[in-house]
Design a binder for these strands. Structure first.
Lengths: 228, 228
DNA sequence: GTCTATACAAGGATAGAC
DNA sequence: GTCTATCCTTGTATAGAC
């Protein structure tokens, strides 16, 4: 009986006990969600493990038990946000239609900011503080991504399918305009006097940005005759 | 002699002693400058009085001696930034030329971000955290300012001097696009591979934004015939 | 597997020496 | 007018009870 009782004791993630695994999964999820909110609000240093624990409805020690350390938790959240970001960066080519690509770019970026406002603000706070954890990513992976898109935009301009505007500035313009509604949500709500940014607002803003930016860059409407 | 020696002792801001006043003025200036950097980097909670003191090259107690409290120092910095902001908000009227006004708006906003990047980031961090100290300002003063400008933009659209775009979205677009180069400076530098944003870059970006946004809103070039 | 108790550093703020 | 010493709170992290 001693062997059996010892065997049934809870151990680090035992293979059979699905209820235990479920608790862990739920707690981890709650902690990640709570931490994203708190880090977004107060930044890395300003956020306390205590505050994250309270937001998650768990004792402080559990947060550290599940996540190891405050630093590790923060890095994990940043990586999760980068993953979401990469997920919508489908490849484009010179053959694609500029109008379609830019519209899809604006739309998907707006959706990302809308679906993950806390993650968006977490990222913003990281950059605002000088990007101590993301410098490598910015100078490497992201830089390559931007330059690849910039080349395509330049080629479109050479082909006369849009104005010869600085492509990097254009990418920054789209980023900032879309990100604004997540990062400066408090300002947007204060000025518009609304309680929240509704789905119809997002649609309206997306249309506005698409229209102004595409027209502003002289993007030619798709050559409808070619495909039909 | 006793009276005289007592009279020459340093007292709280004695009227005649200009050297003492000079020290105070210099220390206050140093503290405000240092605090703006630290608050911008770490947010209100993340910033420590210790870090501000080190940045200013003063002992921690002096910061509290001069500024009273961390909270008071923070509010003072926010108010200073609002004052800078208000300084460039000259009144406009329906009679003005849309192109000139929008260009001046973009240019002055870019200059503000350029001249006071730390103040700009301080403001951004405050909004990012839900604007706990600025909610009143956003819902009051700033809201009125935006709505007044929005009305003028609408009238311009009615007169056919620009496209009938949503005026508030347009103001947000200009704000976000210009503010981006201060708030996301770390990202901009990482991606462009530069050490700093030079004056010529600012000029180039200003031109880009003016061109794209004015064209995107269908702003008619000034009626040159009228004045000549 | 979960939580209380605790160690030890750093936080804001003040009193008092110089 | 300036700075050292100190108070008390809060911070992160861990050890050990349940």
């Amino acid at each position: 009986m001693n062997d059996l009782s010892e065997a049934t004791k809870l151990q680090p993630s035992p293979p059979g006990s699905d209820s235990t695994g479920a608790v862990r999964a739920r707690n981890e999820r709650d902690i990640l969600e709570a931490a994203e909110r708190i880090f977004a609000r107060f930044g890395y240093r300003g956020a306390s493990v205590q505050a994250i624990a309270e937001e998650a409805g768990l004792p402080k020690s559990n947060v550290l038990y599940y996540m190891g350390s405050k630093r590790g938790l923060y890095i994990r959240l940043l990586e999760r946000m980068m993953a979401r970001w990469n997920a919508l960066l489908d490849d484009i080519s010179v053959e694609d239609d500029p109008a379609e690509v830019l519209e899809a770019f604006i739309r998907s970026k707006m959706q990302l900011s809308r679906r993950h406002p806390e993650g968006s603000r977490l990222f913003a706070a990281e950059i605002l503080g000088g990007a101590p954890f993301l410098q490598e990513y910015l100078c490497g992976e992201l830089r390559d991504w931007v330059q690849a898109r910039a080349r395509i935009l330049e080629q479109w301009a050479e082909q006369g399918r849009m104005d010869p505007v600085d492509p990097v500035s254009l990418i920054f313009l789209i980023w900032s305009a879309t990100q604004h509604y997540a990062d400066f949500e408090a300002q947007v709500l204060g000025i518009t006097g609304k309680e929240e940014i509704a789905e119809e607002d997002v649609e309206r803003i997306t249309h506005f940005l698409t229209r102004v930016i595409l027209k502003g860059c002289g993007v030619k409407p798709r050559e409808s005759a070619v495909h039909s």
